[in-house]
């Protein structure tokens, strides 16, 4: 199957590959997989004090479309608020990368990964009550 130029571009030069410290309270981590094909995607966001995603990273094992979908997702996430990030739809990824129908599930995986990372971040920030937070230095 022929990949679109945009898929090839992301596949050959994936953006934002890597990872953040999972234990960092400013980091949200989402790990999702597709048992049908064995693809696994890990996507992390780093959120600043204003609630804006200042950085995003991913690690994906899967086909070119899965790598391109997660690479594109990390690009889109940067600079977005948490709500805006939650609004990213897999159909936008399909459109941007011109994914064929058999590869739509790769974009779904990317959307799932975003949602999981947001959920992880939110559950972390909820457990960290402002009253309990003590200044770490002096």
């Amino acid at each position: 199957m022929a990949y679109s130029d945009k898929v090839l571009d992301h596949y050959n030069a994936p953006r934002n590959v890597g990872s953040f410290d999972k234990a960092d309270p400013h980091v949200g981590t989402g790990v999702v997989g597709a048992p049908e094909c064995g693809d696994v995607m890990k996507l992390q966001i780093k959120v600043n004090a204003e609630g804006v995603i200042e950085d995003a990273k991913f690690k994906t094992f899967g086909c070119g479309s899965a790598i391109a979908s997660s690479s594109l997702a990390t690009e889109w996430l940067k600079g977005k608020s948490l709500d805006e990030a939650g609004d990213i739809k897999n159909t936008e990824i399909v459109k941007e990368l011109s994914l064929p129908p058999v590869k739509v599930h790769c974009s779904v995986l990317a959307e799932d990964a975003i949602k999981a990372a947001l959920k992880d971040y939110k559950s972390k920030s909820e457990t960290e009550s402002p009253l309990a937070a003590t200044p770490s230095e002096g």
Binding site: V31, V32, G33, A34, P35, K42
Partner: peptide, 20 residues
């Protein structure tokens, strides 16, 4: 089916990533 229940423990998926 696999597509009806794809949720797996995140720790397991992390292990798969590590193995890859």
């Amino acid at each position: 089916s696999a597509s009806e229940q794809k949720e797996m423990p995140p720790e397991f998926l992390e292990d798969v990533l590590e193995l890859r």
